[in-house]
């Protein structure tokens, strides 16, 4: 009697779920993992791709972080790695050891946005040099008040908010501002969750912080973005248009996907990446990232079709590199 009941329940559950089980045997997967910064774009592309393929291809996306993603990628566990920074030397070696070749494809820009509380009326713009005074390692414990940076600014505590040291955003900001990746003062409020940073700056009139553009854009009413003076001497507010025009420098950074050359031989992976590069621009904009130019997407697609394996960076982080130039480089493995 009991076992009958159990089998009835099992059958009911099975029936409820069997809608999806139709093509269980013919399953084709595209496995993606990596950066949480790239995740929203990849998620959007995956969503649209599955719709376009009528769910014949199953796409999975994880968020292990850029480093975690490359680890899995170089073990051959996934087909595509989401990366918010270029592949590093160590990771290149790991991939080479495992015989995994890859194609590096920029898919969008993220604009690191420097924000202050709306009550802060004196900070009209900021130069990289000033940012460096605030964030460099030697500022630790010394630069603690606004008027220490500029005597015209009020005598109020300087409260800093930024992403934690495991974040690709932190890597890029420190490289761009302090000249060395991961070199930063340590006495600031750090969080891997950008929403925590948003709240921190919202609540403190003396705060300054930085994070990805999407988080600023969603909280425009509660935060003020500070225009950053670019190398040409012009103060530019972060916006999709400014980044696309190449004016929001040096805090605009390209983000990437790395596709395994072996996985590329599978038609579903190839199709997915082509779909990504064709529709990624529109979808990136929708999730508040900055698309590359059409020419760059075309160039990337070209590189992909030609199977140009390797990285254009050679394992070193670089600031202010133009995507068009990057795509022209002869990639190294």
């Amino acid at each position: 009697m009991k076992s009958m009941k159990l089998s009835v329940v099992t059958a009911a559950v099975a029936a409820a779920l069997s809608v999806s089980a139709g093509s269980a045997l013919a399953d084709t997967f595209v496995k993606i993992d990596g950066s949480s910064t790239v995740y929203p774009i990849t998620e959007a592309v995956a969503e649209e791709f599955q719709k376009a393929k009528k769910n014949a291809v199953k796409v999975t996306v994880g968020i292990s972080g850029t480093g975690g993603g490359f680890k899995k990628f170089c073990r051959g566990e996934i087909d595509i790695s989401d990366a918010s920074r270029p592949i590093l030397k160590k990771e290149m070696e790991d991939c080479a050891k495992a015989g995994i070749k890859y194609i590096e494809l920029p898919v969008a820009f993220d604009a690191l946005t420097v924000v202050v509380n709306p009550k802060n009326t004196f900070l009209k713009q900021v130069t990289v040099a000033v940012l460096k005074m605030m964030w460099e390692p030697s500022a630790q414990g010394k630069i603690t008040r606004w008027n220490q940076i500029n005597p015209a600014w009020p005598d109020a505590p300087l409260k800093l908010f930024g992403p934690g040291a495991d974040s690709g955003t932190f890597d890029y900001f420190t490289e761009a501002v302090n000249g060395k990746s991961k070199a930063s003062r340590g006495d600031f409020t750090a969080s891997e969750d950008d929403n925590v940073l948003v709240q921190g700056v919202t609540r403190d009139a003396n705060a300054l912080g930085y994070f990805g553009f999407a988080y600023y854009d969603e909280n425009k009413d509660k935060l003020k973005a500070v225009p950053v003076v670019n190398p040409k001497g012009k103060a530019v507010s972060p916006s999709i248009a400014a980044v696309m025009a190449g004016e929001y420098e040096p805090l605009a950074r390209p983000i990437f996907i790395y596709v395994s050359a072996k996985a590329m031989d599978r038609p579903e992976v190839k199709e997915f990446v082509e779909f990504y590069l064709k529709h990624g621009g529109k979808l990136a904009k929708e999730v508040k990232y900055v698309p590359l130019s059409d020419a760059d997407y075309k160039h990337a697609l070209d590189n992909f079709k030609k199977k140009k394996t390797g990285t254009g960076f050679g394992g070193v982080a670089e600031v202010g590199v133009k995507v068009a130039d990057l795509l022209k480089r002869d990639p190294k493995e």
């Binding site: 099992t10 089980a21 993992d33 995740y39 996306v61």
Partner: peptide
């Protein structure tokens, strides 16, 4: 152990294959 975040399909139904 590597659970995923975006997954827009269901696993095959238990014991139905």
């Amino acid at each position: 152990i590597g659970a995923l975040t975006f997954i827009a399909f269901l696993p095959p139904a238990p014991f139905a294959g």
